[in-house]
Design a protein around this nucleic acid. Structure first.
Lengths: 195, 195
DNA sequence: AATATAAAAGCACGAACGTTCGTATTCAAA
DNA sequence: TTTGAATACGAACGTTCGTGCTTTTATATT
């Protein structure tokens, strides 16, 4: 029962629900999860507010489902593609590089960068879901830094996380893609630190 | 007439305006600059919506004035205290340490962390003001990294910026102050890199 | 003390929000 | 062919938002 939605997939309802969530992730990367309004989302998908609303029952449930869909995208575009690389340094390199590519899948930059700061002071299940996703990623980074033989994997994971998140933040604010050159230079220095 | 507010300071209106903006910066660190509503702000300060509104004339002007007040706080709590340290490595150390302390001056973590990601996809003067403030800080970091003798001051400034911003982001999301230990360890490693 | 001006309040508006409700359409099972 | 659930729609609700108008209170100057 750990499945993302425990549905058979294929029914019409499930297809529209998936389409809604895919668009919701994109929209939330631009407007945030509060700025993600049901009317706007319905308009984008050319359906009625009430028809869309029926799929979730409340805005909070829509937000929770959107966080789940964002996590699915992260797994599919970052963790899963990197999983073919061996544990340790190669995996760390692969995850960082796939993350930078994954940023282009959003119209508004990284979903997590937009929503984590939005919800960090809003206690509740949405905040918890966001925090759990990011904690899981951080834990994976620590695991791989450890496998790479780092003496202080926590610090190393923190630095790698900091660099890629700052790449997203600076890129969104300046519009300058050379930000990624800075990020790659920083990642190269981190890579050189590995034993 | 280019002064920040072109006012004599001391009149009652100016005093309340300053009080409003001080509270607005705090509130925006929690709710963001859009979530910062005029009614909520007025309620906190025990004054009427219309009385508060008169000081600014539009919500956008309130947001712009709030960004200005946040910049003033950053200068007063980070740049100015660090300015007594010599250029280069000591100044970089002082700025980073003062920044970590400055985070505690907000109820919701760093104002810039909350607002930059909120406005990075909202073109307009508010976004421009936020970007200008952060660009100025980045430029100062580059200047000091250069003065410290780094071969690639841009990359170094980017890394330092990334570490302190990630410290704020992770701290807000996890509530764990040990995040600052990780950040300080990362800063120490950056410091050790200086020639 | 009288008066002019600045500051704050009171009140109301139009728009947008999440949400509810009743109804129409579709489609597979009987 | 009839039934019933699934899916979608349109209209309306109560609330909150930013904002504009009018009036009252406070401050400062003569």
């Amino acid at each position: 029962m750990a499945g993302a939605s425990a549905t058979k997939d294929g029914t019409k309802g499930e297809k529209t629900r998936a389409a809604i969530l895919d668009r919701a992730v994109d929209l939330a990367s631009v407007e945030g999860l509060e700025g993600l309004t049901i009317g706007r989302l319905a308009g984008d998908l050319e359906m009625s507010k009430s028809g869309l609303f029926r799929h979730f029952g409340s805005k909070q449930d829509l937000q929770l489902a959107t966080v789940g869909a964002a996590r699915d995208r992260f797994v599919a575009m970052v963790l899963q593609p990197a999983s073919s690389a061996p544990d340790g340094a190669p995996r760390l390199r692969a995850m960082a590089e796939h993350y930078l590519d994954y940023l282009y899948s959003f119209p508004g930059g990284c979903f997590w960068g937009a929503t984590a700061s939005e919800f960090d002071d809003r206690p509740g299940p949405v905040r918890d879901a966001i925090a759990a996703s990011l904690d899981a990623w951080m834990a994976e980074l620590v695991r791989q830094a450890d496998a790479a033989g780092m003496a202080d994997p926590d610090r190393y994971a923190f630095e790698l996380y900091a660099v890629v998140m700052a790449a997203n933040a600076r890129w969104r604010l300046t519009g300058d893609r050379r930000t990624f050159d800075l990020a790659r230079a920083a990642l190269a220095r981190l890579d050189a630190e590995l034993p």
